[in-house]
Design a protein around this nucleic acid. Structure first.
Length: 479
RNA sequence: GCCCCCAUCGUCUAGCGGCCUAGGACGCCGCCCUUUCAAGGCGGUAACGGGGAUUCGAAUUCCCCUGGGGGCACCA
């Protein structure tokens, strides 16, 4: 088995592309075959190196490694279509010489007219084949004289292309609906259909796994393969990814680039896991699994044929699962990087505080980037009180008394750790006959500035005695 | 307009003729736990688009309708 993922570097790698790459990976890794990463960059105007790099980065980030292709080389190099232009032209010329393709001189105006008339008559819009039987010698002469001409494939007529799609079963297209399509433009460059099909043949691809949007182009690709007398390729068309509105996922649904998700604090493992679920199920009522586990179970014929809506809520939930499952050390190191990006180089004190609070923060965030507001109060002395929290908590009847009493007890505390702090504060609650909500929330607001924060006792320990007392006093004085 | 694909809870899905009074997950709603927020536990809400046909028996097979989607370039 040899599969390929062949994105055009005309934009950042998006989640739909990532899903296609993932399914290719899943299909081939369980088969001991090769995964080829190709660059369909024939559109030189829209292609850019920045996008190409982004695709590479995205693939690596997800952990989808490939065997041959861009950045990797291999027996069929180069894997970049822009470097194989001569090859495509030669193939087109050869097909023409063999009578399987022909020159066409129809102008843009003529083509427009054809389409208009065909539609008006309820026929499939498209080229009418007017140069199909044109005298080749005459055609060659006209081209030699400098006239613009494209090369079109001579689609067998009458005829029909039937193939067995690996996820959809038998699909058939009558050739009445497949025009003699252009394979080589008048400027000598190949169309997508030609370049892609030639590469698939040249690179000995056995299975083409791609989005359903290419299903109706498949007859063209099969026809080119047949004209080339190549070994038939198997096709699997994956269901499309849709936005919440049920339309094909695209820019209109916001930034759907993979990088946007990475920057938003999603983990690659969660992304891979979630993407795998869009069109496939692991089975046994299990939907959290690793890439390796998925490889072991994946089957193309188990892929769902119907489109899937990308549900950010579930992705978010899953990301939380992966964050919680992360090792403390790994989480801490990710956290340090993130915090350093925001606050600059961390001081030893900040680092140790981060390390102390990290395990507690890990349990309560869904996005890596959520971490900032949870730990802010530990990184700066300049805490700002959330006005809503302050009014609701600090102006309550028992707030001042709770702070005073806590202050007194904490000052005398012999050992400053979670356990002792909890003991002292529970004694305070007991003494004042207050429940946790009334007695502890004021302390939380006093030290963190908000009624929402990591667990109080742990936070106090991490903050340290001096700063904790200082903050309680500062808050008290504002009452 | 023409061609193709698809059709189970709001969403992702399990189901491949009887195990289905349709299972799981996300979301949502309760309750419990609880110092906040989470997490966790328990429970609940919610679906086989419609009509025929085949069959002793259809979510599962076939046909039609409806609905949704994709594609119809010298873009990929």
């Amino acid at each position: 088995m040899r599969v390929r993922f062949a994105p055009s570097p005309t934009g950042y790698l998006h989640v739909g592309g990532a899903r296609t790459a993932l399914y290719n990976y899943l299909a081939v890794r369980g088969n001991g075959g090769e995964f080829i990463l190709r660059s369909d960059d024939t559109d030189t105007l829209r292609s850019s190196d920045e996008f190409q790099q982004d695709i590479l980065e995205g693939m690596r980030w997800l952990g989808l490694d490939w065997d041959e292709g861009i950045d990797k080389d291999g027996p069929h190099a180069p894997y970049r279509q822009s470097l194989r232009l001569d090859r495509y032209r030669q193939v087109a010329e050869r097909l023409m010489e063999g009578g399987q393709a022909y020159l066409c001189f129809a102008t843009a105006k003529e083509l427009d007219e054809m389409r208009r008339v065909a539609q008006a008559e309820g026929r499939p819009p498209g080229y009418d084949g007017r140069y199909r039987d044109y005298d080749p010698t005459e055609a060659a002469k006209r081209r030699a004289a400098g006239e613009d001409a494209v090369i079109r494939l001579k689609v067998p007529r009458p005829g029909e292309t039937v193939f067995r799609d690996l996820v959809r079963g038998e699909v058939r297209f009558g050739h009445d609906h497949v025009e003699d399509f252009v394979i080589l433009r008048s400027n000598g460059t190949p169309t997508y259909h030609l370049a892609s099909s030639v590469d698939d043949v040249d690179f000995e691809i056995t299975h083409v796994i791609r989005g359903e949007d290419l299903l109706s182009s498949t007859p063209k690709h099969i026809l080119i393969g047949e004209a080339l007398d190549a070994v038939p390729i198997r096709y699997a068309h994956l269901p499309l990814l849709m936005g919440p509105d049920g339309k094909k996922l695209s820019k209109r649904h916001g930034d759907t680039s993979l990088r946007a998700y990475r920057e938003a604090g999603y983990l690659p493992e969660a992304m891979v896991n979630y993407l795998a679920l869009l069109g496939w199920s692991f089975g046994e009522d299990q939907d959290v699994f690793t890439l390796e586990e998925a490889v072991g179970r994946f089957r193309l014929d188990a892929v769902q044929p119907n489109a899937a809506i990308f549900d950010n809520d579930k992705l978010l939930w899953m990301n939380g699962v992966y964050i919680r499952n992360m090792g403390d050390a790994e989480f801490l190191s990710r956290l340090e990087h993130l915090i350093a990006d925001e606050y600059g180089e961390l001081s030893p004190l900040q680092r140790s505080r981060l390390a102390g609070i990290a395990p507690h923060v890990k349990e309560r965030i869904k996005l890596l980037t959520d971490v900032g507001e949870q730990v802010r109060f530990l990184l700066t002395d300049d805490i700002e009180y959330d006005s809503g929290s302050w009014e609701k908590i600090m102006t309550a009847p028992d707030a001042a008394a709770a702070v005073d009493d806590a202050l007194a007890r904490l000052r005398d505390l012999e050992v400053w750790d979670t356990q002792h702090i909890e003991g002292a504060l529970r004694a305070m609650l007991d003494h004042l006959q207050l429940n946790g909500r009334k007695g502890l929330q004021p302390l939380r607001v006093a030290i963190s500035g908000s009624s929402i924060s990591p667990p109080l006792f742990e936070s106090l320990e991490v903050l340290g005695r001096d700063d904790s007392l200082a903050r309680l006093e500062a808050a008290r004085s504002r009452l």
